[in-house]
């Protein structure tokens, strides 16, 4: 079937086709089209099928390799991956495809926003009460500092932000949690849905640093094994006396193999970087091209992070 020259007629035809297509058929059509090497332009049946799957705006380049690496699975066979996530088409796929599908199960695209919006990730902020979790989040979200205009977080709160990571949109939903100890028995239930965790302490509050071990135990017990985790020492701007040296933070981070940075929600230092680093790591886990070097979160953070704040000791 070919598209017509008249755009209105074209749309009408597409709509009719879309109504007639089941999701299953749509997946089959798109899959055939993509495995056949992305003949261009796509016939209207395929465009209709893409519409059914919510991917009509998808721009794709033909694969250069007909046997893509596991990491390229999604890049070249998005509909196969989609089928996996919908439980439509499992038996004929390779282990790589299934591995990818399990990833997709956790980082699922909103079907109406197209494939280059695929990364929807949950980042959770944890740490003692008053270490600045909400402020860090608002600094990142709105670029502002909440001096005395924010309320204590009770239970859990959410904010969204879309980041552009190397030309791809990554939507982060950031979960801001209550820090008071008794809430831990409530919040630990949230860990399993988090793709990344930012664990904060306050460099002017020794207790909040001492409690990091307890938080890590909690994380080890409840979070996913492959969760992206970063340790942040917040409030480095503070005029109050520093209670935790940068070296102590570094040492602890090294002990647990965590990337580490000192941040300030007030001045904004390293705040965007912390979130960007996480988004890069998450994006890379989904769609790294074979010739693309591994993204190394530790190195990135070390390289880009601003500091040290030795002068404040």
């Amino acid at each position: 079937m070919q598209g017509t020259a008249d755009p209105a007629e074209d749309t009408r035809q597409l709509t009719q086709l879309q109504c007639a297509l089941s999701a299953h058929t749509a997946v089959r059509l798109c899959l055939e089209y993509s495995t056949a090497g992305w003949a261009s332009p796509p016939p209207s049946s395929v465009r209709a099928a893409q519409g059914v799957l919510g991917h009509q705006h998808l721009a794709r380049t033909p694969p250069t390799d007909h046997h893509p690496s596991p990491e390229l699975w999604f890049h070249h066979f998005p509909y196969a991956a989609f089928a996996h996530t919908q439980g439509l088409w499992v038996s004929s796929f390779s282990e790589a495809g299934k591995r990818f599908a399990s990833w997709m199960g956790r980082v699922r695209p909103p079907p109406d926003q197209g494939r280059n919006y695929v990364n929807l990730a949950v980042v959770m902020l944890v740490g003692d009460s008053g270490v600045g979790k909400t402020c860090l989040l608002v600094r990142f979200k709105d670029g502002a500092f909440l001096a005395g205009t924010f309320i204590s977080t009770v239970g859990i709160d959410f904010r969204n932000k879309v980041l552009d990571v190397d030309g791809m949109k990554v939507k982060l939903q950031i979960w801001d949690t209550a820090g008071q100890e008794r809430f831990r028995s409530v919040t630990h239930a949230y860990y399993r849905d988090a793709h990344a965790l930012l664990l904060l302490y306050d460099v002017t509050n020794k207790t909040s640093f001492d409690n990091i071990q307890a938080w890590l135990t909690e994380i080890q017990e409840y979070a996913q094994d492959d969760v992206v985790l970063m340790l942040l020492g917040n409030k480095v701007d503070s005029t109050q006396e520093r209670a935790v040296k940068r070296e102590d933070g570094e040492k602890l981070a090294k002990e647990y193999g965590l990337p580490y940075m000192e941040t300030s929600a007030k001045t904004g230092v390293n705040v965007d970087l912390a979130f960007t680093a996480i988004a890069k790591e998450l994006k890379q886990r989904i769609m790294k091209a074979p010739n693309e070097p591994h993204f190394l979160l530790h190195d990135y953070v070390k390289q880009e992070g601003r500091g040290p704040f030795c002068c404040q000791f």
Binding site: V154, G155, I156, V186, A189, Y190
Partner: peptide, 19 residues
């Protein structure tokens, strides 16, 4: 979706709808 109710409603109960 495996969403825990506590995720979406804990604040309703704890704050008795304040804020």
């Amino acid at each position: 979706h495996g969403v825990l109710w506590t995720l979406v409603v804990s604040r309703w109960f704890i704050c008795l709808f304040v804020d």
